[in-house]
Amino acid sequence: MERESPTGPDWDRLYEFAASQEGLFTTRQGAEAGYSPQLLQHYVRIGRVRRIRRGIYRLVHFPAGEHEDLVAIWLWSEQAGTFSHQTALALYDLSDVLPSRIHLTLPDSWRHRRLRAPNVVVLHYADLLEAECRWAGAVRVTSPTRTLNDCAQAALSPDLLRQATQQAMHRGIVTGSLPLVEEALKPFGGLGT
C-alpha cells in the first residue's frame, strides 16, 4: 500500500478504517489518518474515493461488501446505532420479511437531537444492553430475542412474527419464553407449532 510522508496522510491507516467497514470511512476517520477535507475532495475528483453521503466515503478499489448500505447508515449514526426490528430479522434471515426501510435503534439520549435521517431509515430510541446486541459483519444488530420483542411491540404482521419466532426457536438462536411475542400473537391463534 502507498504510504505518504510520516507527518502527512497515512494511506495504511485510512485503509485500516475502511477495511473493517466494507470499504467505507468517515471524514473524521480520514482526519485521524491525516487527510484534510480538501485532500478527500481531491481524491474524489481524481477517482480514488467516492462520496457516499455527507461525511462518508468509499475507497473505489475496495471490493463491494454485502451490507455496504447498512455500514453507511451505521457510520451516519456515528457508530452509535444498532440495526433492529425488520432489518434485524432480515440480517438473521428470519421469516420472509422484506423490509422497505432500514430500522435503526439509537440511544435514548439521541431522541432530542435534530437529526436529518436518510429517507430510507426508520429511527427507534432505546438504551440497549450489550447482551441485547450482536455483530453481523461490520454492523451491530439487536439480538434475536430483542429483535422478536421489538417486532412484537411494533405490531409486525402476525404471520411474519410467528414465522420468525418459529424459525428462531427451530434454529436454537432463542431459548425460553417470549412473553411479548406470545401476547402479540394470542389474538391470532398464538405461536402454533
Rank of each mutant, 00 (worst) to 15 (best):
S100N: 12
C133N: 10
L59A: 00
R113Q: 15
S84T: 14
E130V: 09
W135A: 11
W74T: 00
G30E: 04
G192N: 13
N149G: 07
T26N: 09
S95L: 06
F83H: 03
S36R: 13
H85K: 10
N149Q: 13
P37M: 12
W135P: 00
W76K: 01
V122N: 09
T82M: 04
L161Y: 04
L178H: 07
R116I: 10
R58T: 00
D69I: 02
H85T: 06
V60D: 06
G172W: 13
E66T: 09
M169F: 06
R28E: 15
R162G: 01
R3T: 11
L191R: 09
D159P: 02
P118L: 05
G30Y: 01
Q166D: 04
A72L: 07
P99S: 09
A155C: 12
V141F: 03
Q166A: 09
L104K: 00
Q153S: 14
D108L: 14
S143N: 05
R50Y: 02
P63W: 08
E4G: 14
I102E: 01
R45E: 13
L39V: 08
R51H: 02
Q41V: 08
V174A: 03
V181S: 03
V174F: 03
T175L: 10
E4W: 06
L123G: 04
R53L: 12
E132A: 09
W110S: 12
E68Q: 14
R54C: 06
R53W: 07
P179V: 10
V141H: 03
R101F: 12
L161S: 01
A80E: 15
A126C: 10
W74Q: 01
Q41S: 14
Q167R: 09
L160H: 07
P107H: 07
G190A: 13
A184F: 06
V139G: 00
R54G: 08
M1D: 08
G176C: 08
L180T: 08
A80D: 14
L161P: 00
S95P: 04
Y92M: 08
L75D: 01
V71E: 00
P99Q: 04
R48M: 10
Q38K: 11
Y57Q: 00
V141M: 08
R101V: 14
Y43K: 12
E183P: 01
S95Q: 05
T147N: 05
G30I: 01
A18D: 02
R101L: 10
Q153R: 15
A152H: 03
A33E: 11
W110M: 15
D127V: 07
H61W: 08
S36N: 13
L40F: 06
H112L: 12
T165I: 06
E130I: 06
L39K: 12
Y35V: 00
L39F: 07
F62Q: 01
R50P: 00
L98S: 14
E22D: 08
T27R: 15
H42N: 12
S157M: 08
D12N: 11
G176T: 08
E132L: 05
A88M: 07
K186M: 11
T26C: 05
E78G: 12
H170V: 10
P144T: 02
T82K: 02
I73W: 01
E132G: 05
E68D: 13
E4I: 05
S100T: 14
I173E: 07
E130F: 07
V139F: 03
P179G: 09
